[in-house]
Design a protein around this nucleic acid. Sequence first.
DNA 1: GCGACAG
DNA 2: ATCTTGTCGC
Length: 342
Amino acid sequence: MSGASSSSRTVLPPLPDLNADLERRLAQTPPGQVTTFGALAKSLGDRRAAVWVANLVAALPENGLLPWHRVVRADGTLPAIGPRLERQRSRLAAEGVASVDVAPGRAIVDPRAPRRRDFEGASVLQPLLDWQREMAARIDESPRTGPIELVAGLDVAFAADGRACGAAVVVNVRERTVIGSAAASLPDPFPYIPGYLTFRELPVLLELWQRLAAAGLPADIAMVDGQGRLHPRRAGIASAFAAVSAVPTIGVGKSLLCGRPLATNDPDLAEIVDDGERIGWSLSPGGRFKPIYISVGGGLSLDQALACVRSQLTGRRLPLPTHEADRLSKQAVGGPVGTSAS
DNA sequence: GCGACAG
DNA sequence: ATCTTGTCGC
């Protein structure tokens, strides 16, 4: 029996239930102790998940079973706001943890309160980091020799009910005309954490690519909303897409995840260097827009990626395929569950 | 010690 | 990304 017959080929690593993993750790902070967002995030495997932790803790029900009130910021300030702040203070006080006012609406816990920093449980983000490094090692940045005539722009929008709604728009780059599109929606699989966008948005991108093929709309390359090699592991979502699908991709980001711009002779253009590596371009079309950040996903060179994006500028901030995919995905948020193509 | 963090 | 009113400017 051949594995090739499977219609559910595994392309992503198993995704942890981060919500449950965080809640198990939160429950390990006993009365009389406090912990921090950063300590919880580090225990999950990456301190950069601290903002996600903070948002989740802020959304916990006040009368639930989890000790939301025992989480403070690294500097000791209490994160709760408004009336919830007073309830956090009184709950801590009832457990013997004092806090003092430092400003209107700002209180700080007694620095002598014991801080929990270590928790039982696996670093569930670590396998995802390892997977990204594996994908990074697969990336080919040599110049593409095949055609670049049809480019599919890919983007994802999120509905209030949690659906991830993706859209793909195929553009004839010579004419700069839209020749077709596809849409797909899936349940939101993973939260947004800086550096881990792939695990949130790649599933719907792969579904989109299948829908394009099914609709007879094969594109030569994909332009992905997000970074490619311009990523701490050199494997942003555009690179993960390329590694998993063997489709050449360009990453087009609207803000910088890592690296710093280095000016060039062209005022519209800056090199992005991270850790000594030149891995992207910052481009402000006509100098009148906030820059966009271009990097290789895989399957072509950085020069080709830049040239392709520039060729699709039509007076707006984003290149045509990305702009149209952005529009269609936002439109799909209001649409039905499932997939479609045109 | 302060800042930074794709979508 | 998403939640949202009016407002500044070509």
